[in-house]
Design a protein around this nucleic acid. Structure first.
Lengths: 204, 204
DNA sequence: GTGTACCGGTACTCAGCCGTATCGGTACAC
DNA sequence: GTGTACCGATACGGCTGAGTACCGGTACAC
């Protein structure tokens, strides 16, 4: 849908369909995601997004048919690889570093997940987009770490706690604000890994 | 607001203010909570609740001023003590039994929390009601278990994993449906306690 | 220069829901 | 029997937001 920006600099055949530059598009996406984090999915309006980006509601509806499709597109554009470049050679250190890294974007991602948590049960496209953007990459990265640890022989592949590591990490991320009102930061996550995750895995 | 039912059987002075019996009131509360679980807070309408309980919208507005106040009242009425009567004399067995018990109501409570997760950030009364109904009782019960374990000398009071037990338990409850699409049942929670929580605490 | 087609702005339709008002029916008190 | 006051039903006002239509301006292609 917006993939022509990747390999079509300026002068290619397919007649330009839109004057919206990729940078402009990202402004729209950032605006709607930010408003979702602040006000929740239901309270976000196309008018509000248009106003905050100084564009016209018509412009948004020319690019995306409906509000959920617009939000889903924003989520997919926001998708990025998590925990990039974490590979210390030690499972324990990988997890420690992942905890530190997660602290940076935990608040933003958790807010999004919280705000869209129920909307995703009604709209299937939204659900898939949210999963691809926020959930699958994190789980995949964690499982990759664990797989490397198994391959190095640091932990047995049938260790009973292995399958619960993603749930523990993401679970703590998500419930922290509910339990004590503030989002999990790097320090909290690092202490959690040290005090609970590593002992459960039998590492130190 | 509705506390006269507790100590006023039938024949007391204070003129009856409402013909709504406590049983009828509970029907209203059950209906609105169920609709919240199904459709989310924003999508629940007073008209829908009235229709599904075959009462009039006026009846609801006579008892409760606004929709959030109505929902908050329903939450408070739904409040109940969790993990009642769990006291096996062993911290590990307490946690095992709590996991089994939690499986019974985890789906309903998790749906509510998910549906109201963002609404609670905007309405303070709703937020407090939700916390009192669904979060505080569970945390209190867990911490009581842990305190008993400490008192019996099963675990040192400064064990680093102690403070993360509530977050682990509730975290897993909440993210399970996000991760794999189904709610945490008793078996899953029991296996989680066995494989992750108890080892983190150094029990067995 | 000329034309095309997209952009921003505004006005509009349509639908849904909150909360209020009104009215007849009825159960209970006395 | 009589009165009171609550219940259920319905209709209504007001607002908000999704999505559409139209219109003038303008940038880019050729």
């Amino acid at each position: 849908m917006t993939s022509q920006a990747a390999d079509e600099p300026e002068t290619v055949v397919a007649s330009r369909r839109s004057k919206i530059t990729p940078e402009r598009e990202r402004e729209f996406f950032d605006a709607v995601l930010e408003q979702i984090r602040e006000c929740g999915y239901e309270s976000v309006t196309m008018e509000g997004v248009a106003a905050s980006t100084r564009c016209s509601k018509s412009t948004l509806y020319r690019q995306w048919k409906t509000k959920p499709q617009f939000v889903a597109a924003a989520l997919r554009a926001n998708r990025r690889v998590r925990f990039t470049g974490i590979d210390t050679g030690s499972l324990a250190d990988d997890l420690r570093q992942a905890a530190r890294a997660a602290g940076d974007w935990s608040a933003k991602d958790t807010k999004l997940l919280q705000a869209l948590g129920h909307a995703m049960t009604s709209d299937q496209e939204l659900s898939r987009a949210l999963r691809e953007a926020l959930i699958d990459p994190e789980i995949a990265a964690l499982q990759e770490m664990l797989a490397r640890g198994v391959a190095r022989g640091e932990i047995r592949s049938d260790h009973p706690a292995l399958e619960y590591v993603p749930a523990m990490m993401l679970g703590v991320l998500r419930v922290r604000p509910v339990l004590c009102g503030e989002y999990a930061d790097s320090d909290y996550l690092a202490r959690f890994v040290e005090a609970a995750v590593l002992p459960a895995l039998g590492l130190t």
